[in-house]
Design a protein around this nucleic acid. Structure first.
Lengths: 205, 205
DNA sequence: GGTTTAATGTTGACATTGTCAACATAAAAT
DNA sequence: ATTTTATGTTGACAATGTCAACATTAAACC
Protein backbone atom coordinates (compact mmCIF):
# COMPACT_ATOMS: atom_id res chain seq x y z
CA UNK A 1 0.00 0.00 0.00
CA UNK A 2 1.20 3.45 -0.84
CA UNK A 3 0.97 4.80 2.70
CA UNK A 4 2.35 1.61 4.19
CA UNK A 5 -1.09 0.87 5.69
CA UNK A 6 -1.98 -2.78 5.25
CA UNK A 7 -5.34 -3.69 3.68
CA UNK A 8 -5.60 -7.11 5.27
CA UNK A 9 -5.88 -7.84 8.96
CA UNK A 10 -3.40 -10.71 8.75
CA UNK A 11 0.09 -9.74 7.69
CA UNK A 12 0.98 -13.27 6.58
CA UNK A 13 4.68 -13.27 7.33
CA UNK A 14 5.13 -10.82 10.16
CA UNK A 15 7.83 -12.74 12.01
CA UNK A 16 10.30 -12.68 9.11
CA UNK A 17 9.35 -9.13 8.19
CA UNK A 18 10.17 -7.93 11.70
CA UNK A 19 13.60 -9.51 11.49
CA UNK A 20 14.30 -8.05 8.05
CA UNK A 21 13.06 -4.61 9.14
CA UNK A 22 15.31 -4.84 12.19
CA UNK A 23 18.27 -5.72 9.95
CA UNK A 24 17.51 -2.72 7.80
CA UNK A 25 17.26 -0.37 10.79
CA UNK A 26 20.62 -1.70 12.04
CA UNK A 27 22.21 -0.41 8.87
CA UNK A 28 21.73 3.12 10.20
CA UNK A 29 21.80 2.90 13.95
CA UNK A 30 22.93 0.90 16.94
CA UNK A 31 20.67 -1.70 18.53
CA UNK A 32 20.16 0.58 21.54
CA UNK A 33 18.50 3.15 19.28
CA UNK A 34 15.99 0.69 17.87
CA UNK A 35 12.52 0.45 19.38
CA UNK A 36 9.96 -2.31 18.86
CA UNK A 37 7.33 0.31 18.13
CA UNK A 38 9.45 1.80 15.37
CA UNK A 39 9.99 -1.61 13.80
CA UNK A 40 6.27 -2.39 13.96
CA UNK A 41 5.40 0.97 12.44
CA UNK A 42 7.93 0.42 9.64
CA UNK A 43 5.96 -2.69 8.67
CA UNK A 44 2.53 -1.16 9.21
CA UNK A 45 1.26 -3.23 12.14
CA UNK A 46 0.27 -2.12 15.64
CA UNK A 47 2.84 -1.63 18.37
CA UNK A 48 2.05 -4.93 20.10
CA UNK A 49 1.73 -7.21 17.07
CA UNK A 50 5.40 -8.29 17.47
CA UNK A 51 4.46 -9.86 20.82
CA UNK A 52 2.58 -12.52 18.92
CA UNK A 53 5.82 -13.75 17.42
CA UNK A 54 8.45 -12.72 19.96
CA UNK A 55 8.35 -12.99 23.73
CA UNK A 56 10.14 -9.63 24.11
CA UNK A 57 12.28 -7.07 22.38
CA UNK A 58 15.26 -9.11 23.50
CA UNK A 59 13.86 -12.12 21.60
CA UNK A 60 13.52 -10.11 18.41
CA UNK A 61 17.09 -8.88 18.73
CA UNK A 62 18.23 -12.48 19.23
CA UNK A 63 16.41 -13.48 16.04
CA UNK A 64 18.06 -10.61 14.16
CA UNK A 65 21.43 -11.70 15.53
CA UNK A 66 20.82 -15.28 14.42
CA UNK A 67 20.00 -13.95 10.95
CA UNK A 68 23.33 -12.17 11.06
CA UNK A 69 25.16 -15.41 11.82
CA UNK A 70 23.33 -17.03 8.91
CA UNK A 71 24.50 -14.27 6.58
CA UNK A 72 28.09 -14.52 7.86
CA UNK A 73 28.03 -18.31 7.47
CA UNK A 74 26.69 -18.16 3.92
CA UNK A 75 29.08 -15.40 2.82
CA UNK A 76 32.04 -17.35 4.19
CA UNK A 77 30.90 -20.62 2.63
CA UNK A 78 30.54 -19.00 -0.80
CA UNK A 79 33.96 -17.38 -0.51
CA UNK A 80 35.66 -20.60 0.56
CA UNK A 81 33.98 -22.61 -2.20
CA UNK A 82 35.93 -20.57 -4.75
CA UNK A 83 39.11 -22.44 -3.78
CA UNK A 84 38.13 -25.96 -2.81
CA UNK A 85 41.70 -27.27 -2.68
CA UNK A 86 43.87 -24.44 -1.37
CA UNK A 87 43.73 -24.05 2.42
CA UNK A 88 45.88 -20.94 2.37
CA UNK A 89 43.66 -19.21 -0.17
CA UNK A 90 40.59 -20.35 1.78
CA UNK A 91 41.93 -18.53 4.83
CA UNK A 92 42.49 -15.42 2.76
CA UNK A 93 38.98 -15.58 1.34
CA UNK A 94 37.44 -16.27 4.75
CA UNK A 95 39.18 -13.21 6.05
CA UNK A 96 37.80 -11.09 3.26
CA UNK A 97 34.26 -12.35 3.77
CA UNK A 98 34.50 -11.71 7.50
CA UNK A 99 35.84 -8.21 7.05
CA UNK A 100 33.28 -7.42 4.36
CA UNK A 101 30.61 -8.25 6.93
CA UNK A 102 32.18 -5.70 9.26
CA UNK A 103 32.12 -3.01 6.62
CA UNK A 104 28.58 -3.68 5.46
CA UNK A 105 26.97 -4.50 8.81
CA UNK A 106 28.96 -2.89 11.64
CA UNK A 107 26.04 -2.46 14.02
CA UNK A 108 24.77 -5.95 13.35
CA UNK A 109 28.19 -7.40 14.13
CA UNK A 110 28.23 -5.49 17.39
CA UNK A 111 24.81 -6.93 18.29
CA UNK A 112 25.89 -10.46 17.37
CA UNK A 113 28.96 -10.47 19.55
CA UNK A 114 28.37 -9.47 23.14
CA UNK A 115 26.12 -6.99 24.81
CA UNK A 116 22.71 -8.14 25.93
CA UNK A 117 22.90 -11.26 23.77
CA UNK A 118 24.98 -14.05 25.25
CA UNK A 119 26.05 -17.56 24.27
CA UNK A 120 25.62 -18.41 27.94
CA UNK A 121 21.88 -18.10 27.57
CA UNK A 122 20.70 -19.13 24.12
CA UNK A 123 18.74 -21.74 22.23
CA UNK A 124 20.50 -24.82 20.89
CA UNK A 125 20.04 -23.60 17.34
CA UNK A 126 21.37 -20.13 18.06
CA UNK A 127 24.41 -21.42 19.97
CA UNK A 128 25.17 -23.76 17.12
CA UNK A 129 25.00 -21.26 14.30
CA UNK A 130 26.91 -18.68 16.34
CA UNK A 131 29.89 -21.04 16.26
CA UNK A 132 29.89 -21.63 12.52
CA UNK A 133 32.83 -19.34 11.85
CA UNK A 134 34.86 -21.34 14.31
CA UNK A 135 33.84 -24.65 12.72
CA UNK A 136 34.52 -23.36 9.23
CA UNK A 137 38.02 -22.21 10.18
CA UNK A 138 38.71 -25.49 12.00
CA UNK A 139 37.81 -27.33 8.83
CA UNK A 140 40.13 -25.20 6.69
CA UNK A 141 43.00 -25.67 9.14
CA UNK A 142 42.47 -29.43 9.28
CA UNK A 143 42.69 -29.48 5.49
CA UNK A 144 45.84 -27.38 5.63
CA UNK A 145 47.53 -29.67 8.11
CA UNK A 146 46.56 -32.85 6.29
CA UNK A 147 47.84 -31.48 2.97
CA UNK A 148 51.09 -30.39 4.60
CA UNK A 149 50.56 -26.64 4.13
CA UNK A 150 50.26 -25.76 7.80
CA UNK A 151 52.26 -26.85 10.84
CA UNK A 152 50.88 -29.87 12.60
CA UNK A 153 49.29 -28.16 15.57
CA UNK A 154 45.93 -28.48 17.29
CA UNK A 155 43.42 -27.29 14.69
CA UNK A 156 41.04 -26.28 17.41
CA UNK A 157 43.59 -24.02 19.04
CA UNK A 158 44.76 -22.65 15.72
CA UNK A 159 41.13 -21.92 14.81
CA UNK A 160 40.82 -19.86 17.94
CA UNK A 161 43.89 -17.90 16.89
CA UNK A 162 42.78 -17.37 13.29
CA UNK A 163 39.26 -16.49 14.37
CA UNK A 164 40.65 -14.01 16.88
CA UNK A 165 42.70 -12.29 14.20
CA UNK A 166 39.83 -12.02 11.70
CA UNK A 167 37.24 -11.15 14.32
CA UNK A 168 39.48 -8.50 15.87
CA UNK A 169 40.13 -6.88 12.52
CA UNK A 170 36.41 -6.93 11.74
CA UNK A 171 35.46 -5.45 15.13
CA UNK A 172 38.10 -2.71 15.01
CA UNK A 173 37.03 -1.75 11.50
CA UNK A 174 33.35 -1.66 12.40
CA UNK A 175 34.08 0.38 15.55
CA UNK A 176 35.91 2.98 13.47
CA UNK A 177 39.19 2.28 15.25
CA UNK A 178 41.12 1.80 12.01
CA UNK A 179 39.70 4.78 10.12
CA UNK A 180 43.13 6.45 10.06
CA UNK A 181 44.56 3.34 8.45
CA UNK A 182 41.76 2.64 6.01
CA UNK A 183 41.13 4.95 3.09
CA UNK A 184 39.36 2.66 0.63
CA UNK A 185 37.69 -0.68 0.12
CA UNK A 186 40.89 -1.81 -1.59
CA UNK A 187 42.90 -0.91 1.50
CA UNK A 188 40.58 -3.01 3.65
CA UNK A 189 41.24 -6.02 1.45
CA UNK A 190 44.96 -5.29 1.67
CA UNK A 191 44.88 -5.21 5.46
CA UNK A 192 42.83 -8.37 5.59
CA UNK A 193 45.31 -10.14 3.32
CA UNK A 194 48.25 -8.71 5.25
CA UNK A 195 46.79 -9.95 8.53
CA UNK A 196 46.39 -13.52 7.28
CA UNK A 197 49.75 -13.42 5.53
CA UNK A 198 51.50 -12.22 8.69
CA UNK A 199 49.89 -14.98 10.68
CA UNK A 200 51.02 -17.56 8.15
CA UNK A 201 54.61 -16.32 7.91
CA UNK A 202 55.14 -14.96 11.42
CA UNK A 203 56.69 -11.76 12.71
CA UNK A 204 60.01 -13.09 13.92
CA UNK A 205 63.10 -12.74 11.76
CA UNK B 1 25.20 7.59 55.07
CA UNK B 2 24.11 4.12 56.01
CA UNK B 3 20.95 4.16 53.94
CA UNK B 4 22.71 5.78 51.01
CA UNK B 5 20.71 8.95 51.57
CA UNK B 6 22.97 11.99 51.44
CA UNK B 7 22.84 14.51 54.29
CA UNK B 8 24.24 17.39 52.29
CA UNK B 9 22.56 19.07 49.37
CA UNK B 10 25.80 19.19 47.36
CA UNK B 11 27.31 15.86 46.51
CA UNK B 12 30.77 17.31 45.92
CA UNK B 13 32.06 14.85 43.31
CA UNK B 14 28.98 13.70 41.47
CA UNK B 15 30.51 13.57 38.01
CA UNK B 16 33.18 11.02 38.94
CA UNK B 17 30.77 9.11 41.17
CA UNK B 18 28.37 8.66 38.26
CA UNK B 19 31.13 7.26 36.10
CA UNK B 20 32.32 4.90 38.83
CA UNK B 21 28.75 3.78 39.56
CA UNK B 22 28.25 3.13 35.87
CA UNK B 23 31.43 1.06 35.76
CA UNK B 24 30.19 -0.96 38.69
CA UNK B 25 26.77 -1.56 37.10
CA UNK B 26 28.52 -2.69 33.91
CA UNK B 27 30.10 -5.52 35.88
CA UNK B 28 26.69 -7.16 36.03
CA UNK B 29 24.76 -6.07 32.97
CA UNK B 30 25.00 -4.72 29.48
CA UNK B 31 24.91 -1.00 28.77
CA UNK B 32 21.43 -1.34 27.30
CA UNK B 33 20.15 -2.50 30.68
CA UNK B 34 21.53 0.50 32.53
CA UNK B 35 19.32 3.50 33.18
CA UNK B 36 20.36 6.99 34.26
CA UNK B 37 17.74 6.92 36.99
CA UNK B 38 19.19 3.70 38.41
CA UNK B 39 22.70 5.17 38.42
CA UNK B 40 21.49 8.34 40.15
CA UNK B 41 19.59 6.31 42.72
CA UNK B 42 22.68 4.16 43.38
CA UNK B 43 24.52 7.35 44.39
CA UNK B 44 21.59 8.89 46.27
CA UNK B 45 20.82 11.91 44.11
CA UNK B 46 17.66 12.82 42.22
CA UNK B 47 16.96 11.40 38.78
CA UNK B 48 17.95 14.59 36.96
CA UNK B 49 21.09 15.54 38.88
CA UNK B 50 23.26 13.79 36.26
CA UNK B 51 22.08 16.36 33.70
CA UNK B 52 24.12 18.96 35.57
CA UNK B 53 27.28 17.10 34.59
CA UNK B 54 26.35 15.24 31.40
CA UNK B 55 24.41 16.49 28.40
CA UNK B 56 22.66 13.13 28.04
CA UNK B 57 22.81 9.44 28.90
CA UNK B 58 24.96 9.00 25.84
CA UNK B 59 27.47 11.48 27.28
CA UNK B 60 27.69 9.55 30.54
CA UNK B 61 28.26 6.31 28.62
CA UNK B 62 31.01 8.03 26.65
CA UNK B 63 32.65 9.12 29.90
CA UNK B 64 32.44 5.57 31.25
CA UNK B 65 33.96 4.29 28.04
CA UNK B 66 36.79 6.79 28.28
CA UNK B 67 37.43 5.56 31.82
CA UNK B 68 37.62 2.07 30.38
CA UNK B 69 40.29 3.13 27.89
CA UNK B 70 42.21 4.72 30.76
CA UNK B 71 42.09 1.44 32.70
CA UNK B 72 43.20 -0.57 29.65
CA UNK B 73 46.03 1.87 28.97
CA UNK B 74 47.27 1.78 32.56
CA UNK B 75 47.03 -2.01 32.83
CA UNK B 76 48.97 -2.44 29.59
CA UNK B 77 51.60 0.10 30.56
CA UNK B 78 52.20 -1.63 33.91
CA UNK B 79 52.45 -5.03 32.22
CA UNK B 80 54.90 -3.83 29.57
CA UNK B 81 57.07 -2.03 32.13
CA UNK B 82 57.95 -5.42 33.63
CA UNK B 83 60.15 -6.16 30.60
CA UNK B 84 61.66 -2.89 29.42
CA UNK B 85 64.10 -4.52 27.02
CA UNK B 86 62.36 -7.53 25.54
CA UNK B 87 59.90 -6.69 22.75
CA UNK B 88 58.74 -10.28 22.43
CA UNK B 89 57.92 -10.53 26.13
CA UNK B 90 56.28 -7.13 25.97
CA UNK B 91 53.92 -8.44 23.32
CA UNK B 92 53.12 -11.43 25.48
CA UNK B 93 52.44 -9.23 28.49
CA UNK B 94 50.34 -6.80 26.46
CA UNK B 95 48.26 -9.70 25.30
CA UNK B 96 47.69 -10.86 28.84
CA UNK B 97 46.71 -7.41 30.04
CA UNK B 98 44.29 -7.00 27.13
CA UNK B 99 42.71 -10.40 27.69
CA UNK B 100 42.48 -9.83 31.45
CA UNK B 101 40.42 -6.73 30.64
CA UNK B 102 38.04 -8.90 28.63
CA UNK B 103 37.61 -11.34 31.49
CA UNK B 104 37.12 -8.71 34.17
CA UNK B 105 35.11 -6.14 32.20
CA UNK B 106 33.31 -7.85 29.29
CA UNK B 107 30.39 -5.45 29.14
CA UNK B 108 32.64 -2.41 29.45
CA UNK B 109 34.75 -3.65 26.56
CA UNK B 110 31.62 -4.09 24.47
CA UNK B 111 30.59 -0.51 25.26
CA UNK B 112 34.05 0.84 24.44
CA UNK B 113 34.25 -0.73 21.01
CA UNK B 114 31.28 -0.03 18.79
CA UNK B 115 27.61 0.34 19.40
CA UNK B 116 26.27 3.80 20.09
CA UNK B 117 29.75 5.15 20.83
CA UNK B 118 31.81 5.95 17.76
CA UNK B 119 35.28 7.28 17.01
CA UNK B 120 33.65 9.10 14.15
CA UNK B 121 31.98 11.43 16.59
CA UNK B 122 34.08 11.99 19.68
CA UNK B 123 36.08 14.62 21.55
CA UNK B 124 39.77 15.05 20.77
CA UNK B 125 40.69 13.61 24.16
CA UNK B 126 38.44 10.56 23.81
CA UNK B 127 39.66 9.81 20.26
CA UNK B 128 43.22 10.06 21.46
CA UNK B 129 42.95 7.76 24.45
CA UNK B 130 40.87 5.26 22.48
CA UNK B 131 43.91 4.74 20.25
CA UNK B 132 46.40 4.14 23.06
CA UNK B 133 46.48 0.39 22.58
CA UNK B 134 47.44 0.94 18.98
CA UNK B 135 50.17 3.41 19.90
CA UNK B 136 51.51 1.16 22.65
CA UNK B 137 51.76 -1.80 20.27
CA UNK B 138 53.36 0.34 17.57
CA UNK B 139 56.00 1.36 20.08
CA UNK B 140 56.72 -2.26 21.04
CA UNK B 141 56.99 -3.30 17.40
CA UNK B 142 59.32 -0.41 16.57
CA UNK B 143 61.56 -1.54 19.40
CA UNK B 144 61.42 -5.12 18.13
CA UNK B 145 62.39 -4.11 14.61
CA UNK B 146 65.21 -1.81 15.75
CA UNK B 147 66.67 -4.52 18.02
CA UNK B 148 66.45 -7.08 15.23
CA UNK B 149 63.86 -9.29 16.90
CA UNK B 150 61.07 -8.67 14.41
CA UNK B 151 61.06 -8.54 10.63
CA UNK B 152 61.59 -5.10 9.16
CA UNK B 153 58.01 -4.31 8.17
CA UNK B 154 55.76 -1.31 8.60
CA UNK B 155 55.25 -1.03 12.35
CA UNK B 156 51.95 0.70 11.78
CA UNK B 157 50.60 -2.15 9.72
CA UNK B 158 52.01 -4.76 12.06
CA UNK B 159 50.38 -2.92 14.96
CA UNK B 160 47.06 -3.26 13.22
CA UNK B 161 47.65 -6.99 12.88
CA UNK B 162 48.77 -7.52 16.48
CA UNK B 163 45.98 -5.35 17.83
CA UNK B 164 43.45 -7.29 15.74
CA UNK B 165 44.66 -10.57 17.18
CA UNK B 166 44.57 -9.40 20.80
CA UNK B 167 41.34 -7.47 20.39
CA UNK B 168 39.64 -10.36 18.66
CA UNK B 169 40.64 -12.79 21.38
CA UNK B 170 39.43 -10.36 24.03
CA UNK B 171 36.08 -9.77 22.28
CA UNK B 172 35.44 -13.46 21.64
CA UNK B 173 36.21 -14.28 25.26
CA UNK B 174 33.99 -11.51 26.59
CA UNK B 175 31.15 -12.54 24.27
CA UNK B 176 31.31 -16.10 25.59
CA UNK B 177 32.27 -17.48 22.17
CA UNK B 178 35.27 -19.36 23.56
CA UNK B 179 33.58 -20.85 26.61
CA UNK B 180 33.99 -24.38 25.20
CA UNK B 181 37.71 -23.78 24.87
CA UNK B 182 38.29 -21.99 28.14
CA UNK B 183 38.04 -23.86 31.41
CA UNK B 184 40.19 -21.78 33.72
CA UNK B 185 42.04 -18.53 34.18
CA UNK B 186 45.23 -20.45 33.44
CA UNK B 187 43.79 -21.64 30.13
CA UNK B 188 43.03 -18.05 29.14
CA UNK B 189 46.65 -17.12 29.73
CA UNK B 190 47.73 -20.16 27.67
CA UNK B 191 45.52 -19.13 24.75
CA UNK B 192 46.75 -15.57 24.93
CA UNK B 193 50.38 -16.75 24.87
CA UNK B 194 49.61 -19.22 22.11
CA UNK B 195 48.02 -16.51 20.00
CA UNK B 196 51.02 -14.20 20.26
CA UNK B 197 53.44 -17.10 19.81
CA UNK B 198 51.63 -18.27 16.68
CA UNK B 199 51.73 -14.75 15.25
CA UNK B 200 55.46 -14.54 15.93
CA UNK B 201 56.33 -17.95 14.46
CA UNK B 202 53.66 -18.30 11.77
CA UNK B 203 51.41 -21.16 10.74
CA UNK B 204 53.16 -22.25 7.59
CA UNK B 205 55.49 -25.21 7.67
C1' DG C 1 30.76 39.73 56.90
C1' DG C 2 27.25 40.63 53.50
C1' DT C 3 25.79 40.42 48.76
C1' DT C 4 25.87 38.63 44.25
C1' DT C 5 26.84 35.11 41.03
C1' DA C 6 27.44 30.57 39.56
C1' DA C 7 27.30 25.76 40.31
C1' DT C 8 24.60 22.19 41.30
C1' DG C 9 20.79 19.67 43.11
C1' DT C 10 15.32 18.84 43.31
C1' DT C 11 10.60 18.70 41.74
C1' DG C 12 7.21 18.02 38.48
C1' DA C 13 5.88 17.21 33.94
C1' DC C 14 5.82 15.20 29.32
C1' DA C 15 6.86 12.13 25.44
C1' DT C 16 8.42 7.66 24.31
C1' DT C 17 9.05 2.91 25.11
C1' DG C 18 8.30 -2.07 26.58
C1' DT C 19 4.94 -4.99 27.93
C1' DC C 20 0.42 -6.76 29.43
C1' DA C 21 -4.65 -7.96 29.26
C1' DA C 22 -8.77 -7.91 26.91
C1' DC C 23 -10.91 -7.72 22.73
C1' DA C 24 -11.35 -8.34 17.41
C1' DT C 25 -10.57 -10.65 13.06
C1' DA C 26 -9.92 -14.31 10.18
C1' DA C 27 -7.46 -18.61 8.92
C1' DA C 28 -7.49 -23.41 9.86
C1' DA C 29 -9.55 -27.47 11.59
C1' DT C 30 -13.50 -30.16 12.35
C1' DA D 1 -21.48 -24.11 9.31
C1' DT D 2 -19.25 -24.08 13.63
C1' DT D 3 -15.40 -24.24 16.61
C1' DT D 4 -10.68 -23.60 17.57
C1' DT D 5 -6.46 -21.40 16.97
C1' DA D 6 -3.45 -17.94 15.26
C1' DT D 7 -2.69 -13.41 14.99
C1' DG D 8 -3.59 -8.60 14.99
C1' DT D 9 -5.60 -4.16 17.64
C1' DT D 10 -6.76 -1.18 21.44
C1' DG D 11 -5.99 0.76 25.71
C1' DA D 12 -3.49 1.02 29.82
C1' DC D 13 0.42 1.16 32.96
C1' DA D 14 5.17 1.44 34.65
C1' DA D 15 9.71 2.85 33.52
C1' DT D 16 12.79 5.82 31.21
C1' DG D 17 15.12 10.04 29.10
C1' DT D 18 14.91 14.70 29.12
C1' DC D 19 13.33 19.45 29.98
C1' DA D 20 11.98 23.78 32.59
C1' DA D 21 11.41 26.01 36.74
C1' DC D 22 12.61 26.28 41.27
C1' DA D 23 15.84 25.57 45.54
C1' DT D 24 20.19 25.33 47.92
C1' DT D 25 24.72 26.43 48.72
C1' DA D 26 29.55 27.18 47.37
C1' DA D 27 32.46 30.58 45.39
C1' DA D 28 33.54 35.14 44.08
C1' DC D 29 33.46 39.77 44.99
C1' DC D 30 33.34 44.03 47.57
Amino acid sequence: MASGKRKNYHHGDLKNSLVEAGLELLRHQDASGISLRAVAKEIGVSHTAPYRHFKSKHSLLAAISQRGFEILTENTRQAVDKEPNDARQQLMLSGQAYVDMAVEHPKLLHLMFGGALSLRDCSTEYCQIAQNSFLSLTHILENGVSTGVFKDKSSTEMSVVVWSLLHGLAMLISAGQLDNEITSQKRIRELSGLAVDTLLNGLLK
